[in-house]
């Protein structure tokens, strides 16, 4: 199994991508999708990527729903700021967040989440101290943002990529 499919998730992803590009599915495209899924991942062997260990599928699902909701809400919030509909004075600023997450894949997913929610921007991550510098468009309370990132996203990600 290991020898034929060194990266099962990558094989599956490549085969599905191939089928989506070559829809509708015919026997010929299905066969070439299987071939692509089998042959191309062996290229990855020379790169020797760190193995991904994903667990807690329930947490992944919950996190996905949470992120989807946050994307919608922050889109609305940023649109309000741009159109000048937000009342009161707004202050933008930088927040430094001490992260406990060390997994590279976890950090990559966190960067996608932070960028996909408008209003927060990932500026810099220091891998020595584990501190992450964010720019927040609507900074009411810096400590609240630290709690929000850590509780909402970092904790589930540490469960998934432990």
């Amino acid at each position: 199994m290991r020898r034929i499919l060194p990266h099962p998730l990558l094989s599956l992803g490549l085969a599905v991508t191939w089928l989506l590009l070559n829809a509708p599915v015919t026997p010929a495209t299905a066969l070439s999708a299987v071939l692509v899924g089998l042959v191309v991942p062996s290229v990855m062997r020379t790169l020797e990527p760190e193995a991904v260990h994903v667990r807690a599928p329930g947490t992944i699902l919950k996190l996905a729903v949470l992120v989807l909701y946050d994307v919608l809400r922050s889109n609305r919030d940023v649109a309000k700021v741009i159109l000048g509909l937000r009342r009161g004075d707004r202050r933008a600023g930088f927040v430094s967040i001490p992260l406990d997450l060390r997994s590279r894949y976890g950090l990559a997913v966190l960067s996608i989440i932070v960028t996909a929610t408008p209003g927060t921007l990932w500026i810099q991550y220091d891998s020595h101290t584990g501190h992450l510098l964010l720019h927040v468009l609507d900074l009411v309370d810096g400590d609240e943002w630290v709690r929000r990132i850590k509780d909402r996203y970092e904790r589930p990600l540490m469960e998934v990529f432990s």
Binding site: I82, P118, H135
Partner: peptide, 25 residues
């Protein structure tokens, strides 16, 4: 609206937030 943010927001770091509206929703 995201593109309009490029005009309306005052500093560079604020403006970077604007195009993410178009890139997500």
């Amino acid at each position: 609206v995201g593109a309009v943010g490029l005009i309306r927001l005052k500093t560079f770091y604020e403006r970077v937030h604007a195009p993410t509206l178009g890139a997500t929703l």
